[in-house]
Each structure stands twice: as C-alpha cells, then as structure tokens.
Write a protein that binds this DNA or RNA. Structure first.
Lengths: 239, 239
DNA sequence: CGTGCCGTTGAAGGTTCTCAACCGTGGTGG
DNA sequence: CCACCACGGTTGAGAACCTTCAACGGCACG
C-alpha cells in the first residue's frame, strides 16, 4: 500500500519540527530512529486525501496547513468529525462503524505513523506519551463538547459555537474586532455541524443582520461581538 | 471539597481490582502508594452524582455498576455524553463550555483520581500509561462514531446504532436471540441520542413491529435480528 | 388503594431539509 | 478582452421529520 502521495523534498526537516514541538525533552536517539523508521512524511494538495492503511489506527502530526477528518455513513452521507491546524496531533481511527478519511483543506505537510508502532516507539519516553495522552484527551473533550451541540442545539447555536471554537483555536488576536480566515467551505461547516449548506448560509445571514459578524469574500469572517456569539452559542460554564 | 459521598468499608479491595484489571504488569510499590494516596474510593447509590473538584480533569475507574456522563448546556438542556459499565476507565473533563457530571445508574463503586496527578503517578509505568492511552483513544473513537450519528442520522438509525453499541459493550451472548439489560431510562437514551422520550418510545415501537426486537418490562430488550439492526443503523464499513 | 414516576400514544406545530432557481467569482478559451 | 462555464454561495417555497403539548396506561411503592 502506498503511504505517500508525494514525498517531501526533505522529510527530515519535518521530523525536526515534530520533535521540537512535541517532545520538549529531547528523546533518546533510539526513539528518534524508530520514529523516522515508522513515520512517513506526506505532502498533500488542497482537496486530496491522505492514503494509508485503513485497517489500523493511525496517528498524524500536522506540520503545516489544515485538514478535515471525514466519517462516511451509509447513503453517501459524510460527517466531518474534526478540523485540524498546524501543530495538531491527529488520531485517525481504523474504520469500524464508519469509514474515516483525512483530507487536506490547504497545502499540507503531515507525518503519518501507525498508531500501534507509534505508541510502542514512544512508550519509554514519558514526555512523549504524556503529550500524546494530553492531546488525545483534548480531542476527546472537544469531540464531546461538539456532540452536545449536535444533540441538543439548534442551527443558530451550532454556528455560533463553531465560530467561537475556531477563533479560540486559530484566531489571530490582531485586536478586536477579531478576524478569522476559514479554510473550509460552507459545505464543510455544514458537514461538521450536522446542517445543510443552505441552513449554514441562512445562519451566516442572520449573524450579519444581528451585527455579530461581518464577512469579506468567501473565507474571511470578522467577529464584531465575541461575547454576543458566546451567549448565542448556548454554552454553560466559564464564558 | 468533599470527594466521597460514602466511603467504602474496604477501599483497598477496590484498588486491588483496579490494579489487577488495568495494570497487568505489576506496578512498582512507589506507583501503587502514589495511586492510593491520590485516589478516592466512592460508593454511589443509583441516581446520585459523584462529587469532586470540577475545576480539574478527573479520571475514574468504574469497578462495578453503571454510570452516565452528563453535559449541561444552557436552558437546562442535558446531554449524556457517554455511558459506562464495570471495568471502564472514565475521563471527566473540567467544565469549559459545558458542565459535566457523573451520575450513577445503578449501585456503583468507583475510584476517582485527579487526572494530572494520575498521569504523573503513572508516567513511569509504560504498561499503565499505555492502557490509559488506549482507553482514551477508544473513548475518542466511540465519541466520534456517536457524533456522526447525531449529525447525520435520523431517529430510527440512532436507536438502532445505540442498541448495537450496547450489545457489543455489555451484551451477554447467552445464545441468539441476544438479551440486553438496559440500566438507563428512555429519557437517558433520548438525552444520549439527541431525541425526546416520545421519539425514543415511538422508535422502540417501530422496532417491535418490524420484529427486530422484543421488550420485556422496562429494561429488558431481546434482539431478534442483530444484522437487521445493523443495517438499520446506517453504518459503513465492517458489519 | 392512592400516588408518583415512567412509558406510551395522539394531534398540532416548528425547525430544518429538500428541491429549485439565481447570483457572484474565478478560471479558461476563443 | 470578453464571453463562457464551473463552482460555491445565497435565497425562496414546500415537505418531512421531530418536537411540543396533552392525555392516558401501567407498574412500583407507600
């Protein structure tokens, strides 16, 4: 099975970024070599799918770019389970109930590891497995928070939640008003929130009319009232 | 802050069960002592909530019984993020967007640990942190599979998915037809699937009429046609 | 035997989906 | 340079699904 659609010019540099960002404490050289051996540096064009062994869980480190993790249900329905940005550690489940694919939203550089091998290789590096665990817990908590939205919130609350999450994850605080560059399409947003593109579009319209946001072009969103958005998101707890 | 609503007669025995099931390789005595120091053995009656420090992530080991993890959104809406059964390792997020509570469905014995301390105490025990990571990944994958259901499936598919998951997690294969003892109420099921009790009830009715299941009393369900249920669940992939 | 909770069933209403047409932009080729 | 096309996004009307509101049934418990 072909792992890489296109090998990077200089794969080693990706590993260096990875090790610098993930393993703060320098890993042993044996661990380093093991990771290089099992890892594959991949370069994806926007819109292309990462190819890998779907029968095993995978772990990916997103060096740069943005990706979406897609789950397919029967009837051609797709659900975007998560979006990822540079620096994220991604867990890709082997398909059990649903088939999962990782697709690039922009030019993307990633490192792909079989999860089992990755865990084995890093088991003796507490700093490493700690980061991995922390990251997985984060993903779990985000997934749960989003599940609450899917189960118990209406379209307005879902889009507000989405924008708040996006600004918290990748918003540059240039200074209020906050500016957001969304790398995903309306369809992607809908597939993430369990809504149709039409509903997403109408919700964007409502937010504009309420002066909570402005849009510029297809991907730029300016948040004029973050607190208003958070109220609209229907969260509970620390706002 | 009070951690335990009722201390067990013999807390040490719970720890023994925990160590036997989770840490297959015997942990060092220092690790053992550290865990006993930070852990709290708790006994919960059905319907009561575990009390703990909500400002920190917690990790719980469910020795026996069944619990639900509840997220609260604004407007008094509740969503059940996960159900747990004996032997499960539970991650309870500190409230960020939503407030989380762990509530017992039946007589329940659990061990509660602050997540940070737990990770620290077990960092040097690869077998331990491996189990923890594996468990967290499982929870993540389940959460994602359920998110797909919440986002892209109708009521019929959701209930079928639910029953299939339940039988896979705690169904005794006495012999087909499979028998299932559901410790949760219709409301709990609805709160988990993002449906009202009425819709859940109607879906149960439909399943009975289609001869896919039988019900006996409030909690017993007999699955007459597991493959039929799986088809109805709208999964993709290995069936 | 009454009370209360859980579950079931029915009718009306609302939110979102579906279907369809239209608009704006970016890229291509004549 | 402009016309054309493809694609993503917007807007509108009708239909579907689930929710809401309401009444009722049944089992457990005092």
């Amino acid at each position: 099975m072909a792992y890489a659609t296109a090998q990077l010019e200089n794969p080693a540099s990706l590993f260096d970024v990875f090790l610098r960002d993930i393993a703060q404490g320098q890993p042993s050289t044996s661990c380093y070599r093991a990771l290089i051996k099992i890892g594959h540096a991949i370069h994806l064009e926007a819109g292309t799918v990462a190819t890998y062994d779907h029968d095993n869980d995978m772990i990916a480190y997103l060096v740069s770019g943005a990706t979406k993790l897609i789950a397919s249900a029967s009837g051609g329905r797709e659900h975007i389970v998560a979006f990822h940005f540079g620096g994220d550690l991604i867990s890709i489940p082997a398909g059990t109930w649903h088939a999962y694919d990782l697709r690039a939203l922009t030019h993307t550089h990633i490192l792909l590891f079989p999860a089992n091998d990755f865990v084995k290789a890093t088991a003796d590096e507490p700093s490493f497995s700690g980061v991995l665990l922390k990251n997985t817990l984060n993903a779990l908590h985000r997934s749960r928070d989003r599940a609450v939205g899917l189960g118990r919130k209406n379209a307005a609350e879902r889009l507000a939640s989405f924008l708040v999450e996006m600004v918290e994850r990748q918003g540059q605080a240039v200074s209020p008003p906050l500016q957001l560059e969304l790398p995903m399409s309306r369809r992607d947003i809908g597939d993430n929130l369990g809504l149709t593109i039409e509903t997403v579009s109408r919700q964007f319209g409502d937010l504009k009319q309420l002066d909570l946001i402005e849009t510029a072009g297809r991907s730029k969103v300016i948040l004029r009232d973050l607190d208003g958005l958070k109220k609209r998101a229907g969260h509970v707890g620390k706002i």
